Amino acid sequence: MEVRTIKVFTTVDNINLHTQVVDMSMTYGQQFGPTYLDGADVTKIKPHNSHEGKTFYVLPNDDTLRVEAFEYYHTTDPSFLGRYMSALNHTKKWKYPQVNGLTSIKWADNNCYLATALLTLQQIELKFNPPALQDAYYRARAGEAANFCALILAYCNKTVGELGDVRETMSYLFQHANLDSCKRVLNVVCKTCGQQQTTLKGVEAVMYMGTLSYEQFKKGVQIPCTCGKQATKYLVQQESPFVMMSAPPAQYELKHGTFTCASEYTGNYQCGHYKHITSKETLYCIDGALLTKSSEYKGPITDVFYKENSYTTTIK
């Protein structure tokens, strides 16, 4: 009895394709271990004539594949690729409408935090270190965002349907971005203890939790000093293409032309909904596939993004 075979390709990165001759009487799992086709788990399936010449994702289970996976995804987590594939199996079914010149995501599976993050990423200057993220990001900007969303979920250790947080998501993504040249110098002034300067680099240099107003941050924000008295913390120097200011959701007025974009969060910790506000020729609110415009805006804002380049204080 002759062994019926077909020729397929296996890959971990969709760049390096490895030619395989597979036995049609055995499952993919018996031949390769966990195997995925377009995100779908085909591990328990036997090869079919229609699979001839198709590319299958496999887990990096030998040295060659491990090197290829690390170079593309910059992670050695053995569960990463499987999590990416199972997320992709959902995100490829989502709709990605162009809204006001940006790629958004039609609401499904509690994905409003991903839509808000995706919209924000198209408006701030950011370059990702893992080629996987950078490639998928370019495709997302062009309207094909399924891979990018699935990668975000995998890097953030999230599953489809789980509630997510924009600030946490951005923080994970910033860790995989090139923020080497970003720098922030802060000064804390206390009447009792004097003053202390701190220099922050990388992710810490672009994120701040405690106030939404970048102007206020430049002037000074009140913080408790270690001595128990009130101290003032203010920005001395900022070198970065953008800054992200966050605070627990509270009524906040966004003035046209003073910011790049913002995240609105309605609801409580267990259950809520994100919308995205962007400042173009007027203010726009993007909620999944829905767009509304207004000249002014007041609502429960939790993150505001500002364009920056270089700032030095005039406070002496």
Results as ranks from 00 to 15, higher is better:
27 T>V: 09
240 S>N: 01
11 T>A: 06
252 Y>T: 15
115 A>L: 04
150 A>N: 00
191 K>N: 13
148 F>Y: 03
143 G>T: 04
5 T>L: 12
107 W>R: 03
263 S>R: 00
215 E>A: 11
117 A>C: 09
192 T>A: 10
233 K>Q: 08
82 G>I: 11
57 Y>D: 06
198 T>K: 15
148 F>C: 05
83 R>L: 10
33 G>H: 04
245 M>C: 11
58 V>H: 06
239 E>I: 15
140 A>T: 09
92 K>G: 06
89 N>R: 10
261 C>A: 03
32 F>V: 07
46 K>D: 15
77 D>M: 06
158 K>I: 04
84 Y>H: 05
199 T>W: 06
24 M>W: 12
303 D>Q: 00
37 L>A: 12
29 G>N: 10
305 F>M: 06
71 E>L: 10
37 L>Q: 13
298 K>V: 14
175 Q>M: 12
202 G>Y: 03
18 H>Y: 12
210 G>R: 00
125 E>F: 04
266 T>R: 08
182 C>S: 06
229 K>M: 07
186 L>F: 14
43 T>P: 05
296 E>D: 15
33 G>F: 04
135 D>T: 10
125 E>Q: 12
33 G>T: 05
57 Y>R: 06
265 Y>K: 00
228 G>E: 02
144 E>N: 13
221 V>D: 04
79 S>Q: 14
281 E>S: 06
245 M>G: 00
173 L>G: 01
242 F>W: 11
198 T>S: 12
214 Y>R: 01
235 L>A: 02
240 S>V: 01
85 M>R: 09
77 D>I: 05
283 L>S: 00
152 I>L: 12
300 P>M: 15
308 E>D: 09
61 N>E: 15
84 Y>C: 04
122 Q>I: 03
306 Y>P: 00
145 A>H: 03
227 C>H: 01
202 G>M: 00
170 M>G: 02
191 K>I: 09
298 K>C: 09
35 T>K: 04
38 D>V: 13
158 K>T: 04
257 G>Q: 07
121 L>Q: 01
200 L>Q: 15
135 D>Q: 13
266 T>V: 14
263 S>M: 06
172 Y>E: 11
50 S>P: 08
278 T>H: 07
131 P>V: 05
58 V>F: 07
221 V>Y: 08
15 I>Q: 09
106 K>R: 15
49 N>W: 07
25 S>G: 08
45 I>Q: 10
302 T>W: 00
107 W>I: 05
136 A>K: 04
13 D>W: 05
252 Y>G: 00
197 Q>A: 07
280 K>T: 07
275 K>S: 07
98 Q>W: 06
271 C>L: 09
61 N>M: 12
287 D>N: 03
316 K>I: 11
6 I>G: 07
292 T>I: 08
307 K>M: 13
60 P>E: 10
107 W>C: 03
294 S>M: 13
188 V>P: 02
237 Q>Y: 11
164 G>V: 03
179 L>G: 00
245 M>P: 01
130 P>R: 03
247 A>W: 03
36 Y>A: 05
107 W>N: 06
99 V>G: 05
191 K>Y: 10
269 Y>F: 14
3 V>P: 12
102 L>W: 07
144 E>S: 13
209 M>Q: 13
215 E>L: 06
6 I>P: 07
2 E>A: 12
17 L>Y: 09
305 F>K: 00
41 D>I: 11
186 L>S: 10
285 C>A: 08
277 I>N: 01
104 S>K: 03
296 E>V: 11
256 H>T: 09
154 A>C: 08
161 G>V: 01
207 M>F: 07
197 Q>S: 13
31 Q>T: 14
120 T>A: 07
119 L>D: 04
115 A>C: 13
166 V>K: 03
313 T>N: 12
257 G>R: 06
61 N>Y: 10
279 S>N: 12
275 K>A: 09
25 S>E: 09
289 A>K: 06
308 E>P: 09
285 C>Q: 13
81 L>N: 06
151 L>C: 03
75 T>V: 13
40 A>W: 12
24 M>K: 09
285 C>I: 11
21 V>I: 12
145 A>P: 13
267 G>Q: 06
21 V>D: 13
217 F>H: 01
80 F>R: 03
91 T>N: 04
65 L>Y: 13
89 N>T: 08
252 Y>R: 04
171 S>H: 09
75 T>A: 14
230 Q>I: 14
136 A>N: 11
87 A>D: 03
268 N>V: 06
158 K>Y: 04
316 K>C: 14
188 V>A: 06
254 L>E: 02
173 L>W: 01
153 L>R: 02
46 K>H: 08
103 T>K: 04
81 L>H: 12
123 Q>Y: 03
75 T>E: 15
300 P>V: 15
37 L>K: 11
229 K>I: 12
233 K>S: 10
79 S>P: 06
276 H>V: 02
25 S>T: 09
45 I>H: 06
251 Q>E: 13
74 H>C: 08
213 S>F: 02
90 H>W: 15
283 L>G: 01
131 P>L: 05
104 S>I: 03
100 N>P: 03
255 K>N: 08
52 E>T: 14
316 K>L: 10
175 Q>F: 06
156 C>V: 08
108 A>N: 07
8 V>F: 05
141 R>F: 09
108 A>F: 04
33 G>P: 05
103 T>A: 06
230 Q>P: 12
298 K>D: 08
71 E>P: 05
67 V>M: 11
153 L>Q: 04
49 N>Y: 11
240 S>E: 02
20 Q>S: 15
129 N>L: 08
121 L>W: 04
270 Q>D: 06
126 L>Y: 04
299 G>D: 02
37 L>D: 14
102 L>K: 04
251 Q>T: 08
260 T>D: 02
82 G>R: 11
264 E>M: 06
299 G>S: 03
303 D>C: 05
227 C>M: 00
277 I>R: 00
295 S>Y: 08
260 T>H: 08
134 Q>H: 12
216 Q>F: 05
283 L>C: 07
225 C>Y: 00
190 C>P: 03
154 A>F: 02
189 V>Y: 09
84 Y>N: 01
228 G>R: 04
143 G>Q: 06
176 H>Y: 09
94 W>T: 03
